[in-house]
C-alpha cells in the first residue's frame, strides 16, 4: 500500500486534477502566509476604514471593499486559514472518533456492535447538516461551537464505513490466527485491522474535506458560525447579501472562494478514489 503513495502523479493526471491541485496549493500557501501576502493585513483582520466603503473592484482594491471599507481581497485571504483549519479539525476528530468506534464494533461484534451501530443510526436518521444546525443553535453561535456541532453529525459516517471494513478483515484467517495465538485484542485491532482499513479511510477523508468547508460556510451564512469581525467566507457572503444588486462583488467573490476550495477538494477526492478503487475508475 505504501508504494502507491510514493507516486503522487495521479494528482496531476489530467487538466482538471492539475487545476485542482494548483488551486489547493494556492489556498494552502495563502492560509499559511496570509498576513504577509494580503494587501492590507490590518483590514484583513477586521479594522474598519469607513471612508473607503463600497468601492468597486479596480486598481486600488482588486476585489473592491466591503461596507466597512475593508479591502475584500485581504478579507478573503484571511478567511483561508479558518476555512482550511475547520475542515481539517472536523474531519480529523470525526475520523478518529468514528474509526475507533467502528473498529471496536466490527471486531467485537455482539451487543457492543449492536449498541454502537444503533447509536450511529440514530445520528444518521437526520437529514445531513440538520443535527449540526440544531446543535450549534443550542451551543451558541461561534467558530468553535460550529466545529463541535459538525463533529457531532459527522462521526457516524466513519463508524459505519470502518465497521463494514473491519468486519471483512476480522473474518480473515490471519486475524483469527493472531487472536488464537494469544495476541491481545488491542494489538490485533491496531496492527492488523486498522492497517487494512486505511485505504477506504483516506478516500473518505479526502472526499469529506470539501463537504465540511461547504457545511461550515452554510452555518456561517445564516449567522451560526464565525461571528463578526472575523474574516469568514460564509459570513462575508451573508454580509454582502443585502447589497447584492448594487455592491455585487462582496458576496460574489467571498462565495467564489468557498466554491473554488470545495471544488478543488472534490476533484482531488475523486482522483484519489479512482486511484485506489480502479473498479470505478474513469480511465
Amino acid at each position: 500500500m505504501n508504494t502507491r503513495f510514493t507516486s503522487l502523479s495521479f494528482l496531476f493526471k489530467d487538466k482538471l486534477t492539475k487545476f485542482a491541485s494548483l488551486t489547493l496549493v494556492t489556498f494552502i500557501i495563502v492560509a499559511i502566509f496570509g498576513p504577509w501576502i494580503a494587501p492590507n493585513a490590518q483590514q484583513g483582520r477586521g479594522t474598519a476604514n469607513i471612508d473607503d466603503s463600497f468601492i468597486g473592484p479596480g486598481k486600488a482594491h482588486w476585489l473592491g471593499t466591503d461596507e466597512l471599507g475593508r479591502d475584500l481581497l485581504s478579507r478573503i485571504i484571511f478567511g483561508a486559514r479558518p476555512a482550511l483549519l475547520i475542515a481539517l479539525a472536523v474531519v480529523a476528530f470525526a475520523a478518529i472518533i468514528g474509526t475507533a468506534l467502528g473498529l471496536i464494533a466490527g471486531f467485537r461484534g455482539g451487543w457492543i456492535d449492536n449498541t454502537i451501530m444503533r447509536m450511529s443510526e440514530l445520528f444518521l436518521s437526520f437529514p445531513p447538516l440538520l443535527l449540526s444546525l440544531v446543535a450549534v443553535t443550542f451551543l451558541g453561535p461561534g467558530l468553535i461551537n460550529a466545529l463541535i456541532a459538525l463533529i457531532i453529525s459527522w462521526w457516524p459516517w466513519y463508524t459505519r464505513l470502518i465497521r463494514v471494513e473491519a468486519r471483512i478483515v476480522a473474518a480473515k484467517p490471519f486475524v483469527e490466527i493472531s487472536s488464537a495465538m494469544g495476541v491481545p485484542n488491542r494489538i490485533v485491532i491496531i496492527r492488523h485491522i486498522l492497517r487494512n482499513v486505511t485505504t477506504p479511510l483516506i478516500v473518505q477523508v479526502a472526499a469529506d474535506l470539501g463537504t465540511v468547508i461547504l457545511a461550515a460556510g452554510s452555518l456561517a451564512f445564516i449567522g451560526l458560525g464565525a461571528q463578526p469581525p472575523s474574516a469568514d467566507w460564509g459570513l462575508m457572503v451573508a454580509q454582502g447579501r443585502n447589497v447584492i444588486f448594487d455592491q455585487w462583488w462582496i458576496s460574489t467573490f467571498s462565495g467564489l472562494a468557498i466554491f473554488l476550495a470545495v471544488l478543488a477538494f472534490n476533484i482531488l477526492g475523486d482522483a484519489l478514489r479512482d486511484h485506489f478503487d480502479p473498479r470505478i475508475s474513469r480511465q
Binding site: G210, G217, G234, V237, R241, S251, T252, G255, V262, N266
Partner: peptide
C-alpha cells in the same frame, strides 16, 4: 456538488 446553495442563489 461543490456550489454553496446560498451563493448560487445570490448569483
Amino acid at each position: 456538488v461543490s456550489m454553496p446553495a446560498f451563493w448560487f442563489g445570490l448569483l
